[in-house]
């Protein structure tokens, strides 16, 4: 080894005393340290809070979990308002534009009567398999409609399932409020204000017609998401990702079957009236999933805020009449 090319001050010479007899002291010391580690890890108390530098650091994952920080981001989700069922997304395409791997695909909703664009998304597809969780979409969204979820247990054997459509992306605002309370409270006011403005420009059911049915018209997401939303309203147990994911992790036919059974049960209880409309059919489903606290809301005026479900039939008819009148006014 030559040191001549180095400046003198760069050379660190470790002085080892020649006369000093080191009879394997370093080795024994090292073995002692490792053995102490072994002893502390095996017999010492668990150290999962990292209070000590020795001991068991492991968190036994499926049984124990670390608390996820509020700003943790995994995959994007879309929010809808608990009270009205209106989705916050206005299909402004900001997220689609900024998305680095270009996995967001939005189709804007159009007024079926006029053909003019409406501030709502008709289709919203997000490819979870290619999403890189950068969170740019949530950063850029002017309406706070797209947010990053905390649920990271998304592994599946079914690859096409990872192209997530609007129905499975939607979560109630109350769900996001439980996972990121301070972050939501900062934007809540302006987001809801913007939503109210947008609702005014959405004719009919546009803007709230997702999240309750997938293939075959089975009200899937409606069954799952209000369950997550209803629980905090009742002050009951915290809703978690897995609860909201009932429809997501199951195969589609299985979900459909389950919902058929639920609908049948509901029909039995509620009599023939429950079959009157698919909207009315959805309400008992919510009731079964949301369990006791939400069950009190079986009455049409209850606090369960699924899309259009809190409206009584006559109220709905009245609304339709008003809208028809407006359309007539516009000369269609």
């Amino acid at each position: 080894m030559t040191l001549s090319h180095l400046a003198t001050e760069d050379v660190f010479v470790v002085e080892r005393n020649d006369a000093d007899f080191r009879g394997g002291q370093g080795m024994t010391k090292g073995l002692g340290i490792v053995f102490r580690k072994f002893r502390k890890a095996l017999f010492g108390k668990p150290n999962s809070d990292r209070a000590d530098t020795e001991g068991q650091f492991n968190v036994q994952y499926p049984e124990e979990r670390l608390a996820i920080p509020e700003a943790y981001r995994n995959m994007p989700i879309l929010l809808y308002d608990d009270a009205t069922g209106h989705e916050l997304c206005t299909s402004c395409f900001q997220c689609e534009r900024i998305c680095p791997p270009q996995v967001i695909h939005i189709t804007q909703a159009k007024d079926p009567a006029t053909g003019k664009p409406v501030p709502a998304a008709a289709k919203f597809v997000l490819e979870y398999d290619t999403c890189m969780s950068c969170g740019y979409c949530a950063e850029v969204c002017p309406f706070d409609a797209i947010k990053m979820d905390h649920d990271f247990e998304l592994s599946t054997a079914n690859h096409p399932e990872l192209d997530v459509d609007y129905n499975r992306l939607l979560r109630p605002v109350s769900y996001y409020e439980t996972i990121a309370p301070t972050m939501w409270s900062e934007v809540k006011e302006q987001a809801m204000k913007k939503l109210q403005n947008n609702i005014k420009r959405r004719p009919g059911d546009i803007g709230r017609d997702h999240g309750q049915k997938i293939k075959g018209g089975a009200p899937v997401a409606a069954a799952a998401t209000p369950a997550a939303g209803a629980a905090p309203a009742a002050g009951a147990a915290k809703p978690r990702g897995p609860v909201a994911a009932i429809g997501k992790n199951m195969s589609e036919d299985k979900t459909a079957k389950l919902l058929a059974i639920r609908a049948a049960n509901a029909a039995k209880r509620g009599g023939g009236a429950a079959d009157a409309a698919p909207v009315a059919q959805a309400a008992p489903v919510v009731e079964t999933v949301a369990d006791a606290p939400a069950a009190a809301s079986a009455a049409p005026t209850g606090p369960v805020a699924a899309i259009g479900q809190n409206m009584s039939e006559d109220k709905r008819a009245k609304l339709e009449a008003i809208r028809a009148a407006k359309r007539a006014q516009r000369g269609e």
Partner: peptide
């Protein structure tokens, strides 16, 4: 198992 405990694992 034993080397895991030496490395603060399980």
């Amino acid at each position: 198992r034993s080397i895991s405990y030496m490395q603060d694992r399980r």
